[in-house]
Simulated scan of single mutants.
Amino acid sequence: MLKKTLAALALGSALLSAGHAMAADYAIDKQGQHAFVNFKISHLGYSWLYGTFKDFDGSFTFDAAAPEASKVNVTLNTDSVDTNHAERDKHIRSADFLNVSKNPTATFASTSVKSTGEGTADITGDLTLNGVTKPVVIAAKFIGEGKDPWGGYRAGFEGSTTIKLKDFDITKDLGPASESLELIISIEGVRK
């Protein structure tokens, strides 16, 4: 009888532990603004121009024990671009760049996640920008996870990728130093 009880307790403990190691779904913390989609691009080869997208939403699935089972989906409002200069932002929203009247959103949907080391992974996915969909690889780093002060559970990541503007039919000639831009992403999610 004691052996059966201990076996049942051991099995119950194993199942509970396995539950913590299973994949969990997270909503990007848009309300608390604990997530950022930023970019930088060379300005004529003389300096860096930085910008951000202020309106985006998404979710991810994360399993620390099996990172390759993770998934990411993000949708952003291209009209929310902000480079801290109203006239430049208006130009970026035009047909020369993001063409927001025709393409009001940009999306990223992961297709695979490959662990590259302790707490790092390459997230491959389809980026749709300016009406064009191309595969990109985001070099991601796990920042941390745990309980928050409000009774929730959170996980956070950062990542970056470089894209060529011409790959997304952005053909405005800004000179050779400005043919590519770096996307810098910082995401914190709240477990659903």
Rank of each mutant, 00 (worst) to 15 (best):
F157G: 06
K30H: 04
G45F: 05
I163H: 00
H20A: 12
F39S: 00
K114Q: 14
S13D: 02
A95P: 04
T162Y: 03
A95R: 11
A109M: 04
N84F: 06
T120V: 00
D167W: 00
T116A: 03
K192N: 09
G159I: 10
H91M: 00
M1D: 12
S42W: 02
P104M: 14
M22C: 05
M1V: 14
N73P: 07
A7L: 14
K30R: 14
N38R: 13
A18F: 05
P176W: 09
A140P: 10
N130C: 12
T162N: 10
S70P: 08
L16A: 12
D126Q: 12
Q33V: 13
Q31K: 09
T124Y: 04
F36I: 14
K147C: 03
E182G: 05
L9H: 08
D126Y: 09
A177N: 08
S80H: 06
I187E: 01
V100K: 15
L15W: 01
N130L: 09
D126P: 06
T128K: 12
P176D: 13
N77K: 07
I41K: 00
A121I: 00
I138L: 13
F108K: 12
G19D: 00
I185Y: 01
F168T: 04
I143H: 05
V100L: 09
I28C: 01
G45T: 09
E87G: 01
L174D: 06
S13Y: 13
E145S: 15
S101D: 11
G131L: 10
A69K: 15
A95K: 14
K192G: 12
G32V: 08
N99P: 02
M22S: 14
E68K: 06
I187T: 11
H91Y: 01
Y26F: 14
Q31T: 15
D89E: 03
T116F: 01
G125E: 04
H43K: 11
F39K: 00
H85D: 09
S101Y: 04
L11W: 06
K102D: 12
A10F: 13
H85R: 03
N38H: 09
S115T: 15
G117Q: 04
P67F: 08
K102I: 05
V74M: 08
L16W: 03
D25G: 09
A14N: 02
K54E: 03
T83E: 02
F108C: 08
T61Y: 08
D89V: 00
T124E: 07
T78I: 13
L44D: 02
L49H: 03
L76I: 12
A35S: 14
K3I: 14
G58A: 09
V136I: 15
T162C: 08
H85F: 13
F56G: 06
A7C: 05
G58T: 01
K71P: 13
L127R: 15
K30V: 15
T133W: 02
I41G: 00
S115P: 00
A66E: 10
A7Y: 10
G19E: 00
T162M: 07
G144S: 07
D55L: 13
L11H: 10
R93E: 14
H34P: 01
K90F: 11
K164F: 04
S101I: 13
Y50W: 04
T128R: 08
K134S: 02
I123K: 07
L129F: 07
Q33T: 11
G12A: 15
A8D: 02
D63G: 07
S17F: 12
